[in-house]
Computed example of a mutant assay.
Amino acid sequence: MENMKKVMVQFDFPGMTVKEYDQIWQDLRAAGYENPKGLIHHAGAPTNKGVKVVDVWENADKFNEFGQALMPILNKHGVKEPNPEILPLHYEYKIF
C-alpha cells in the first residue's frame, strides 16, 4: 500500500553551481518532467558549499518514482548520487 503522508525532502549538492542546477532542470523538462507527478513545492538555493534543495512531495513513493528519472540526469552531469533526508511533514502553511 502506498504511503499517503506528505514528506519534506532535503538535498545538499556540494560543489554544484546554479548554472548546473538550471541545466538539470532544463534536462528534466526536456524529458517530460516540467511538473513532476506528486511534487507539491520545490525550492533550490545557492549555499557557500553548492546548492541546497528542499521539496514537499505528496508521499515518499512519488519522490522515489521521480528519483528514477532524476538519477540518470544527475549522472549525465557528473553529480554524485545525493543522500536525501526524507522527513514526514508535520506542518504546512499555505498562503496561496
Score class of each variant (00 low, 15 high):
N3G: 15
H90D: 12
F13Q: 08
P14Y: 00
I86C: 09
A31H: 04
V7I: 12
V51T: 07
Q23D: 09
V51H: 04
V54H: 07
Q68S: 12
L87N: 15
H41E: 06
V18R: 04
G78E: 10
M4L: 12
M71A: 11
G32I: 05
M4S: 13
Q26V: 06
K19I: 13
Y93P: 11
N64K: 15
E81K: 11
V9N: 06
K49T: 07
W25Q: 03
V7C: 08
I73K: 10
A43G: 08
F13N: 09
M8Y: 02
V7A: 07
K52P: 05
E81Y: 08
K62M: 09
E2R: 13
M71F: 12
E65R: 12
H42I: 04
M71C: 09
V51G: 05
P82V: 06
V18L: 08
I95P: 13
I86D: 09
M4Q: 14
N75A: 14
F11Y: 10
H77G: 09
V9A: 03
E92M: 11
N75D: 13
N64Y: 14
M71D: 13
P84F: 11
V54R: 08
G67L: 10
K5T: 13
N75Y: 11
K52Y: 03
L89E: 14
F63C: 10
K49A: 02
M16C: 04
I73V: 12
P84G: 12
A43P: 04
G44I: 02
N83M: 09
I95Q: 14
G32R: 01
Q23N: 09
N64F: 14
F63N: 12
N83H: 12
L87C: 14
F96K: 14
K94F: 12
A43R: 03
L70G: 07
E92Q: 14
W57L: 03
F11A: 06
L87Q: 15
F11C: 07
Y33K: 01
A60R: 14
V7R: 05
H90Q: 13
G44C: 05
E58L: 02
L39H: 02
F63P: 11
V53L: 06
V79K: 07
L87E: 15
H90G: 15
E34L: 00
F11G: 06
G78F: 08
K94Q: 13
K37I: 02
G15D: 03
H41R: 04
K62T: 10
G15Y: 02
T47Q: 00
D22E: 10
G67T: 10
E2I: 15
P36Y: 00
V79H: 08
R29D: 02
W57D: 05
H41Q: 05
K49W: 00
I24H: 01
A30T: 09
M4F: 10
V56Q: 10
G44F: 01
M16A: 04
M71V: 13
M16H: 02
K76T: 11
D55H: 07
F63H: 13
